[in-house]
Design a protein around this nucleic acid. Structure first.
Length: 273
DNA sequence: GCTGCCGGGAA
DNA sequence: TTCCCGGCAGC
């Protein structure tokens, strides 16, 4: 029965997003659906909170080279295929603008820097006149060429139920025991407390971006995860993590040391599982 | 009972 | 948007 249902679902673009996720036994896979449902560059500032908690930094061997999940591969997760296909040899680096409501993807860093300078920073100067600020507003995408075309366009039929997905894919969501992309790219791990707040005076469009510390908002599970399954009567609660959280580490007496999320009784953003 | 955190509400 | 908390579920 389940197999038949999945088969039928996989052939129905409109149903691709939500039901497939609902059948997924892995809560951590939810954001894949979101990444799938919405190709990079199609997001708008009105559909997200404006704060992104995507930390590419501390645990990253290369903060400037995040490796987003590949939608075609993500589809395998959605449909229960645990084995990860090898990355295509056509993989190359693209550059995606992180500026709010932009998401433009260009093929060269210089073009991206020029784009940011001209469009977002309003600078007319040459690169040598730049102070390098543009670097904070774009990220490299180690992607396959075909992903930018086939991969994304094939995902065009967005599920009407996937309402507020984040624009950027997040590998950290592939936490164990889900199949991981570790062989191809180290999973990105989110740290920091900024997912729920932005530092005062922060000038960056997506919260606090700093050299070597890029944070985009985590698609907080509560935003989408419970809503979709609940529609079909399945409630998936995020499995309780094993990691010690702020409460346990600092104790209730030092609540001021907790991360913002813990203080607000949200999912801890400092000690991830 | 303690803990993590979802869901919802107040400001 | 920020902040807080009731209440549920796992341990």
């Amino acid at each position: 029965m389940a197999a038949a249902a999945l088969t039928s679902l996989s052939t129905s673009p409109l149903l691709l997003g939500a039901p497939a996720a609902a059948f997924s036994p892995e809560p951590g896979l939810e954001p894949w659906k979101e990444a799938l449902a919405r190709p990079p560059g199609s997001y708008s500032s009105s559909s997200n909170s404006g704060d992104w908690g995507w930390d590419l930094a501390s645990d990253q061997s290369s903060p400037s080279t995040p490796s987003p999940p590949l939608p075609p591969e993500a589809a395998h997760f959605l449909f229960g295929e645990p084995t990860l296909r090898k990355r295509k040899s056509s993989a190359r680096v693209m550059f995606q603008c992180l500026w709010k409501s932009c998401g433009k993807v260009l093929s060269t860093a210089s073009a991206m820097q020029r784009h940011i300078r001209l469009v977002h920073l309003g600078r007319q100067g040459e690169p040598e006149q730049s102070d390098g600020e543009e670097d904070f507003y774009y990220t490299e995408l180690d992607v396959g060429v075909d992903m930018l075309t086939d991969g994304l366009s094939s995902l065009a039929p967005v599920s009407p139920m996937a309402s507020v997905p984040p624009a950027f894919p997040r590998l950290e969501l592939l936490e164990s025991p889900a199949p991981v992309l570790s062989s191809a790219a180290p999973p990105q791990v989110c740290h920091g407390d900024h997912a729920y707040q932005r530092s005062p005076g922060c000038v960056f469009p997506r919260g606090c971006l700093a050299p070597g510390r890029l944070e985009l908002q985590p698609p907080e599970a509560g935003a989408c995860m419970p809503a979709l399954p609940s529609r079909i009567g399945v409630h998936l609660r995020k499995p309780r993590g094993d990691a010690k959280k702020c409460r346990k580490v600092y104790g209730v007496d030092h609540r001021d040391l907790w991360c913002t999320a813990c203080r607000w009784k949200k999912a801890c953003q400092r000690f991830l599982d």
